[in-house]
């Protein structure tokens, strides 16, 4: 009997993982080292070794830079993976949490929470998730019920974004004390992040990510189309809801920490796919690694470029990300395939 033995190239994927991990480590180290206060690594380490937790160096490290860099990493990973999942489930590479209104849904929920006095913790994350989930389900059901084309889904998302934004602005107009609805929140920003916001979001992101990894084949089978996936024994309706739920959990957790950070959910999955990474079992972890690294680097730049003044990270991301995104689209000779 003829035996077919051939292995797919693994070196390339290993190299991509290597680059992603390197970017992640580099971004984390730079995030810890660099900042407006100009504290050196040796100062921080010596204070830490001495156990002098009241020293300014240790306080800056533990309560300013560490939560900030961790939130950059976590939100970057969450939004990038959320984008990859939404794109897979809707079979639409133009989709991302910010474009189809998922972030805006989470944002509205956060604003409502803030209006009612909740400024952090599990309840904020929970409401952000509910806002994100309701929005993504609305888009998904509408797309299926009316057989909307891929372009129409995006247009519905744009309309939904405008509507949710208008509702948010209305809440602010009648309740100006809602501190969360600052420009920083709209653009995306880590400057005021606290452990109270970060810890629930981190737990949600980590658990969701681990579950997603176990469902990577299901996500790939969904891209074969509804009927073919059913022919392979999949309960497609159930799986679609499960994936959208996880996508909303990730986006909601991120928005509850950093606001309406856009672009990363669109840019990172595209960039990773352009490296010929197609299987979700690699796409999801690589989106997490590159998304984390990218946002963390952008946040560090946001802190140091005009130090002691800070820019919201969303601005830096747009400055760096937009030209890069256009570059990878042009280099790929039009990102229209399957779009």
């Amino acid at each position: 009997m003829r035996c077919y033995m051939k292995s797919l190239p693994k070196n390339k994927i290993a190299n991509i993982y290597g680059i992603a991990i390197l970017l992640l480590i580099l971004s984390a180290v730079l995030g810890v080292l660099l900042g407006a206060s100009g504290i050196s690594l040796t100062d921080m380490l010596s204070s830490l070794v001495k156990g002098d937790i009241e020293s300014p160096e240790v306080k800056i490290l533990l309560y300013v830079r560490l939560p900030r860099i961790l939130s950059g990493l976590i939100c970057g990973a969450a939004l990038a993976v959320s984008g990859a999942v939404v794109q897979g489930v809707l079979a639409n590479k133009l989709a991302s949490p910010s474009i189809i209104g998922v972030n805006a849904g989470a944002g509205l929920a956060v604003i409502l929470c803030s209006a009612f006095g909740m400024i952090g913790g599990w309840s904020l994350s929970a409401f952000a998730f509910i806002g994100a989930f309701l929005t993504v389900m609305l888009v998904s059901i509408a797309a299926k019920k009316w057989g909307a084309s891929r372009g129409t889904v995006i247009l519905m998302g744009v309309a939904l974004n405008a509507l949710l934004g208008a509702i948010s602005d209305t809440v602010i107009t009648f309740n100006p004390d809602v501190s969360v609805m600052s420009n920083d929140f709209k653009i995306g920003d880590f400057s005021s992040v606290t452990y109270a916001e970060l810890i629930p979001a981190a737990v949600i992101v980590l658990i969701t990510f681990l579950v997603l990894i176990t469902l990577s084949n299901e996500l790939d089978v969904l891209t074969l189309g509804d009927e073919n996936a059913k022919g392979l024994g999949m309960n497609t309706s159930l799986m679609r809801v499960v994936f959208l739920l996880m996508s909303a959990l990730l986006a909601g957790a991120a928005v509850s920490v950093c606001g309406l950070l856009s672009f990363v959910g669109l840019l990172v999955p595209h960039a990773v796919r352009r490296m010929a990474v197609t299987e979700s079992k690699h796409l999801i972890p690589l989106c997490a690694l590159f998304g984390a690294g990218f946002v963390a680097v952008c946040d560090t730049l946001a802190r140091v470029v005009f130090a002691p003044y800070e820019l919201p990270v969303g601005i830096i991301m747009a400055f760096l990300g937009a030209p890069f995104f256009i570059f990878i689209l042009i280099r790929g000779k039009g990102g229209h395939r399957n779009a």
Binding site: L8, D220, L224, E227, K230, G231, L232, G233, N338
Partner: peptide, 27 residues
Amino acid sequence: AKKVAYLAQGKSTPDMTVEQMVLHGRF
């Protein structure tokens, strides 16, 4: 799905290699 395989009329072109798609037959 272990008894009857089905290939629908309108098939998408998923972003994967031939081997990856064929492997999904084992799903």
